[in-house]
Every structure is written in C-alpha cells, then in structure tokens.
C-alpha cells in the first residue's frame, strides 16, 4: 500500500489518494504537491507535520470541501468506488457525514450555541434518513450512550452546559451515527486536557473496532501518532516526505525532517536532556523546487533542488530523500 506503483484498486484500500496537487487560483502557489497515500480498511492512519504542511487541507480535499479560491490541478481521491474530486455538491453531501465523518479540533463550534444538543442531533439524523422525530431521538440517545455520555441529560442540554470533553464526545457521537467508513479526526485532542484527550482517543479506537471503519488521524503531537497509528505519513511543505508502517518509520527514519522532528519532540524521559536538538528555520519555510525541506535541511546537497522521487525501503516504508540513494553511511549529523 505504500509504494508508488501499488494499483489503486487494491481491495483492502478504503481511501486512495493519488498524485493530488492543489494550488491557490490567483497566485498559482502550490499548497499540496503530488500527494500519494492510501488508507486500508480498519487502520488508523496518521498524518503528522507542522503548521502549513498541508495536513488539514488534505482533509478538506477528501471531504470535497475546498475553498473556491483553491483548485485541484491533478490527481484523484477515491473512497471505495467513488471519485470524490468529480462528484457534484449534492452527491458529496450524501457522502459527507454519512460515509466520511469529520471531527475537528474546534469542538466548541461543532454545535450551534442556542439550540439544544438533542435538537441538533435530530436535525442531522433527519437530514440523512427519512424517520420521525421520535425515532430520531431514539437513534440519538443510542449513540450518545455509545460514547459513554449521560445520554438523556446531554440530549436536553445546551452546548455551553457541557464540558470540553463532553462536547467532543457528543460531536463524535454525531459523527459516527451513520456508521461512516472513514473518520477524519483533525487534531481531535489539541484543545483538551491530557487525560481527557487520551480518553477521547481510547473511545475512537474502541469505536473503530466496533464499526470496522478507518481513521485518518491528523496531529502535530508525535506521542499520539506513535501510540495510536499503524501507518504514518510525514508531511512537509504540502508533500509527504516519508510514509510507512509507523514502527518502521519511527525505528529507522530516513528523511532528515522526520528524524529532526522525532528528536526535537518533548518526551518524558528517565534521563533528562539538557538541551533539545532543534532544526534550523521556521516551519513555514519551504523550497520552491525539489525537496521542500532543503532550506532547513542540515544535510542538503546539490541534487536536493531537483525533484526527489519516493523510493522504498522494504515493502512498508518509503521516503523522498536523496540520502537514501547517496552513501547511507554518510548520514547527516544533527546540530
């Protein structure tokens, strides 16, 4: 599923993104370049990267919700048999919320403030199905119970009467009501406490097993990616620079960006570090040509200004870096 040449029709793949590029209409600036990845049935796929790397934009494209000022210039996004990029708005509406659910960081704005949570559930349910309000309430209560909330109370509450964790749970309930095949969780725990966040991720994993769906987990928190995902894509400057089985990428990171990202993260340690390894420059700075990380890369070489193809290292791990082909012994030194 990782290599470039894997046929898109691979049976096990739920979502296949191929050669996707997105630009800003006016400036022709490239935001996503030749993105290529697939998510298989029942897995948690992590997209990790810093601000401006294109993680959330990728989610928006999968949902078919990109802003009018942007344009998909090439590529395809396939969910099962449907090609998302060529569907009409009406067809998309059937997929969004039903086939693909979306959870955002900003759970506060998920619900309208002046309408009770229960009413909003009923509205969502009746949007997608043709059942009575009474039936709809039963469905809502069922799913509120599923996310371990006091269902009746939450149903009759206004959003501001619930805590952050409860709101995020309620938004998960509404996201999974139609038993989607894919849940996109875009930084679902960033605005939550550590403990609450872990419980939300526990809940998502539990629901994933129960519904047998896949999860696209977008996060900048490497801890979640390490603990929760089976496959990971590392994004920088609108490209996936490294992708593979999470364990393979973590134990043997090839791309200097992946490596530096892993090294500069904070983690609880028996031995306290005196200084964290850092990388040069700002997350937003990316090279126009070739490898987007070349401006910040400590082991940059001439060939980095050329397009770097993905090459694979074993069947479950590939990266776009010339270092892979150059003498591997001459691995860069961290500053």
């Amino acid at each position: 599923m990782i290599e470039n040449n894997t046929p898109a029709t691979c049976e096990n793949n739920l979502l296949v993104v191929e050669n996707l590029s997105v630009i800003i209409r006016n400036s022709r600036e490239k935001l996503i370049r030749n993105l290529h990845f697939s998510i298989s049935q029942g897995e948690i796929f992590g997209l990790v990267g810093e601000s401006g790397s294109g993680k959330s934009l990728t989610a928006t494209v999968i949902l078919g919700m990109i802003s009018k000022s942007l344009e998909v210039t090439s590529g395809s996004v396939k969910l099962g048999q449907s090609e998302i990029t060529s569907l009409s708005e009406r067809e998309l509406r059937n997929i969004r919320g039903k086939e693909i659910a979306y959870l955002s960081q900003n759970y506060q704005s998920f619900f309208t403030p002046f309408i009770k949570v229960g009413q909003q559930f009923i509205e969502i349910i009746r949007c997608h199905t043709d059942i009575s309000r009474k039936e709809a309430k039963k469905v809502a209560i069922h799913w509120l119970n599923k996310v371990h909330l006091p269902a009746e109370r939450v149903f009759n509450s206004f959003p501001d009467e619930l805590s952050g964790g409860q709101l995020q749970r309620a938004s998960i309930a509404s996201a999974i009501m139609f038993q989607p095949r894919l849940i996109i969780a875009d930084e679902p725990t960033t605005a939550l406490d550590v403990l609450t966040g872990e419980r939300i991720l526990d809940l998502l994993s539990e629901l994933k097993e129960e519904l047998n769906c896949s999860i696209l987990l977008i996060s900048h928190d490497l801890k979640h990616i390490i603990n929760r995902t089976q496959t990971v894509g590392v994004m920088y400057g609108g490209q996936i620079v490294e992708i593979g089985k999470t364990s393979a990428v973590l134990s043997n990171p090839i791309h200097p960006y992946t490596n530096l990202l892993l090294q500069s993260r904070l983690r609880l340690n028996k031995h306290i570090q005196h200084e964290l390894p850092t990388m040069l420059g700002e997350p937003g700075s990316m090279a126009e040509e070739g490898c987007p990380f070349s401006k910040r890369c400590p082991s940059v070489m001439k060939s980095c200004s050329n397009i770097v193809p993905m090459s694979s290292l074993g069947s479950h791990h590939s990266a776009a870096c010339h270092l892979m082909n150059a003498e591997r012994e001459e691995r860069y030194v961290t500053r």
């Binding site: 810093e50 601000s51 900048h220 490497l222 530096l260 990202l261 500069s264 993260r265 904070l266 200084e275 964290l276 390894p277 850092t278 990388m279 700002e282 997350p283």
Partner: peptide, 14 residues
C-alpha cells in the same frame, strides 16, 4: 507552538 519551534523556545528559556 509547533514541535520544532517549541524545542527552540524551551532551549532558549533554559
């Protein structure tokens, strides 16, 4: 802050 920037700022504070 982003992971890499967080590391820079914490190093600086220290």
């Amino acid at each position: 802050l982003d992971v890499s920037v967080q590391a820079q700022v914490l190093n600086l504070l220290k």
